[in-house]
Design a binder for these strands. Structure first.
Length: 278
DNA sequence: AGCCAGGTTTGTA
DNA sequence: TACAAACATGGC
């Protein structure tokens, strides 16, 4: 097992995991086990550092996953200096969030499941999919299940999907898995610019503007995306005195304001709002 | 009992 | 184009 140690000033593991960008992690010892792709790591806070333990061969992958080469102090400073009070407050409170570079396919499936759903239930559904369809692996001598391959996801009946709690989203998941097996290449979209990439994502059955924005941000690293869900809509109305009703227009309002920092700022606002309410 | 959750699709005017 | 209803599920 290898260790990666960084300052926790701009990398708080709890905030990074609990801000709603990923769904596969669980409390473990002093911190969390995090499942990414087919791999697993252990992360915890020790003094004023964040420590990650993973296999030697995963080390570079983990650095990439946690976006460790980016200077988040600049992003936080930009939020604090923005002149937008709620954003400055949120950023101070959540400055340890990092935007993860997750697998695009897993992110796509996960955020289709997220629609009109709540985070604990989303986690539960994904956990069941992994349990029934993923591969069994070991980490520190304990077993876990990988996120299913697309071919494993594709072979299932509608009844199976409903049995894990997908409800009306079951056909979305089934069709996407089958389309990918039949040649739809999601990862090939990575080379496209954000607007064109978004257009392509919107062609997928079950993917609307919000899910597309989440996939852009969390799966493709497009930080000029600003997903608007019910929480962000509340922030918009309460703190920005917004009059717009259409979430697409609300998203445009924010991306024009925040540019390439949109995705980071959105997470600060989202996390702060949701933590406060729960 | 009814509303809500990291919304999208479908139908109607 | 704009808006409303329908869509599964479970927690509160």
């Amino acid at each position: 097992m290898e260790k990666i140690v960084c300052s926790s000033q701009y990398f708080n593991i709890q905030d990074t995991l609990c801000c709603g960008q990923l769904f596969r992690f669980e409390p473990y010892k002093k911190g969390y086990k995090v499942f990414f792709g087919a791999n697993c790591l252990y992360a915890y806070t020790q003094g004023d550092t964040t420590v990650i333990e993973c296999s030697a061969q995963d080390k570079e992958l983990v650095r990439e996953y946690f976006d460790l080469t980016r200077d988040y102090s600049l992003i936080v400073k930009s939020a604090i200096d923005s002149g937008v009070e709620i954003l400055a407050m949120s950023a101070k409170n959540a400055k340890g969030i990092r935007i993860l570079k997750q697998d695009a396919v897993e992110t796509l499936f996960s955020f289709i499941i997220s629609q009109n759903n709540n985070i604990p239930r989303i986690k539960g559904i994904i956990e069941k999919l992994c349990y029934f369809l993923g591969e069994k692996r070991e980490f520190n001598g304990e077993q876990y299940f990988t996120f299913p391959t697309v071919s494993a996801l594709a072979g299932q009946s509608l009844e199976f999907y409903k049995s894990v709690g997908l409800g009306y989203r079951a056909p979305y998941i089934k069709k996407l898995a089958e389309d990918i097996v039949n040649g739809l290449d999601i990862k090939a979209l990575a080379k496209l610019d954000a607007p064109i990439l978004k257009k392509e994502l919107l062609k997928i059955y079950g993917v609307g503007p919000k899910v597309a924005d989440c996939v852009l941000l969390f799966g493709f690293g497009k930080t000029n995306a600003f997903p608007v869900d019910t929480w962000i809509e509340k922030v918009y109305r309460e703190n920005f005195l917004g009059k717009l009703k259409d979430r697409v227009q609300i998203s445009e309002f924010f991306t024009r304001k925040f540019g390439e920092n949109s995705g980071f700022f959105q997470q600060y606002l989202f996390y702060n709002k949701r933590e406060r309410e729960i």
